[in-house]
Design a protein around this nucleic acid. Sequence first.
DNA 1: TCAGTCACG
DNA 2: ACGTACGTGACTGAG
Length: 887
Amino acid sequence: MAQKKLLLIDGNSVSFRAFYALFRQLENFKSPDGLHTNAIFGFKNMLDALLKDVEPDNVLVAFDAGKVTFRNEMYDDYKGGRQKTPSELSEQLPVIRELLKDMGIESYELKNYEADDIIGTFATLGEENNMQVTIVTGDRDLTQLASDKVTVMVTKRGVNDLEAYTPEHMKEVNGVTPTEFIDMKALMGDSSDNYPGVEGIGPKTASNLIQKYGSVEGLYEHIDELKASKRKERLIRDKDKAVLGKKLATIDRHAPVTITLADTKLREPDQAALRQLYERLNFRSFLAKMNASADGTNEESATETYTFEELNSENIDELTNIKGQEVTFYLAMLGENYHLAPIEGFCIKANGKIYASENSELLTEPVLKDLLEDKNIKKNVFDIKRTLVGLDRLGIKAQGLDYDMLLASYLVNNENNSNDLGEVAHLYGEYSVKSDLEVYGKGKKAAVPEKDIFYNHLAAKVAVIEKLKPELLEKLKDHEQDDLYDNIEIPTAYVLAKMERNGFKVNASTLEELDQEISKKLTELESTIYQQAGEEFNINSTKQLGHILFEKLGLPPIKKTKTGYSTSVEVLEALKTKSPIVSKILDYRQLNKLESTYIKALPEWIMSDGKIHTRYLQTLTATGRLSSVDPNLQNIPTKTEEGKQIRKAFVPSTPDGYIFSCDYSQVELRVLAHVSGDENMQEAFKSGYDIHAHTAMRIFHLDSPDEVTPLMRRHAKAVNFGIVYGISDYGLSKNIGISRKQAKEFIENYFEQYPQIKDYMDKAIKEAREKGYAETIMHRRRYLPDIHAKNFNVRSFAERTAINSPIQGSAADIIKIAMINMQKKLDELKLKTKMVLQVHDELIFDVPQDELETIKKIVPEVMQSAIKLDVPLIADSNWGHNWYDAK
DNA sequence: TCAGTCACG
DNA sequence: ACGTACGTGACTGAG
């Protein structure tokens, strides 16, 4: 007979993991009666995957019975200080129990015992009955149960990524056997269970000691053999703690359970009850799955079909009198880049009917064109900017697009940044529409499917845009994001569409000339490098380069990467003096970068109008900034002279015209001064001081600005930047090449001088912990589920993010407002000047010669008055006959 | 497709 | 004791 399989699940810890894995979706997972359901959903998903993978005969989900257990009798403060389970999670636990019951799975809890002990007991029972046991948990404590018959699966990220602990794997990870792991824990303590262990002993030392002496007892028998040291003293002093730790860490494998192995046998699920439960929880995907399998059809074909009509010259007049109505519109293009992608069709819902067409020329028929250009006919779409650009290509100046499902969903939760309607819909439990990837395929093979399938896909999209609108608008309201959505993001979409269509004129011939020069230099550098290396190799290959530098030439490898030697600038700079080849390689790298990323690539993007039309991604970044693609015009070189030359190719579109650039001075620091309310920093900005010099004066305790040396200013500048990023002494020391101790002093001085900034940073973290997200001045959110992480690094990252996001994000809010006001002003004054680029804190304009004076006046005015802060906003202007000269 | 590197704010 | 600055996109080699 085949070996029977037993699956044991730690119900509390897995629910906990599921809850935090889907924490950012917390508000998206709610049943109609207001119950949060994210943990239930995650738990159910994980359970399905496990049942499929493990195919168990018996399953038991163990829960903790309460806070107090037999361990508290040994140690009062066991698990003390632990944060209370959030109510959003605890309300879900009974439902998980109910779900298990309906699925035919036994769940169990035992007074005075933890779920761990129940699992330990049943693992032992399973072993005794020669079963193959799998344990699933979010907690490493249970790994002590691993044996040749017991595998412990611990969740890594989320709930579906599991790490399997066998005795061999334990040895690899901890250097000790599963039973020795108990002793290891006893020595190091457990902060989450709140018992101390021996002071100064971490995982490394604990593992070494236990490997040497076998156990806590073994260690203390031989304690005299240890050479005199602080560590030995502490081991002796904290012996009680170690002995207690061992008792606490040991899982009870013979708990007085009142159920038997037979009770854990997997039963048939109660379909009717499950259906009811899913309906109550609004689990539409699970319901759809059930329906699909009930029909005997598979999941794929469970898509709904929509009633639609093909639009043609016969019925097009049905779209004439729809004033005062709301319409939903979707324009289909094949490919991401909507400046170039072929327009394949469209779909419109009006008069309660859905019309679809493959004939985009119909859009230019007066009926439809007028409808789209009438600002009084409100249109719901997915991606306003894309729709505006697509229609503009057909000569249609669309107006009245006033609901954007993509923008709304991005503001509600920007963690998932998909641009695909289907994928976004899935986030809100709406599975009636597929993703474009599924329908069109990807890469070269992407194609519009057969007409009926295509129309149905479009109809599904239009239906979903309309269906989810109330829910998304409600969420925006809950988040106090109405203003951000209506008055910032939607108008920004219009402005960006215009900027993208404007394009930036680029001279291919200027780039061609640069190419001549750079190619020559590159060939020279190449041969010098080959000569000094003694052989020809691919300089662009880090692997080959590493071989030459660190093996053949024997230079010291300073840093390693996952795959081999690091050859980054940082490393090469340090090796510069050791061999002449190194600086040649640095030169080569720099020039090659310019050549391949800009000089060679940019001309490919110049369209027939002589301009480059980038696309801004308005719904991608975590902070609310824009990003630019195809090509990226936000990273055109500016730091080196050779790089800057590239900007000479960016020119005005009119003869003798100007490129005009205006950038905010220190926006992020000004935002910080504003949100923190720090009086010293506000004073510095109000007085118009050079902020970095001012900081230098303060942190170096100088009396007058004259005493500030350039080095001091440079250091102070780095500290100011560091603050915005959520500073660490290590990061600062690495950045400016000082000792960590010195960096620490800088930071301490800084906080002394700007005490309210320190308060701000603490408050930012505290609030993120309480609310689960960080927020900008305009209420843009960034969810930070990792702020609760156990792992120090993961948590620290989230904490720095909590500090940085409101600053970077508020600056992004501000320039968006400036852009909207700017475009309005250009329109009002009927100027021919065009806004052509945004680079985070900078706006760039294509200005006809005779408008320069006006622009010089209005641009800084508009930018500086975008928002009223407690400190002045300053913007500096530059102009010239190309972008290089606008400096 | 991933990792490494480097361009920008 | 941890190993670290925040946010992006494009190109290249290598699997």
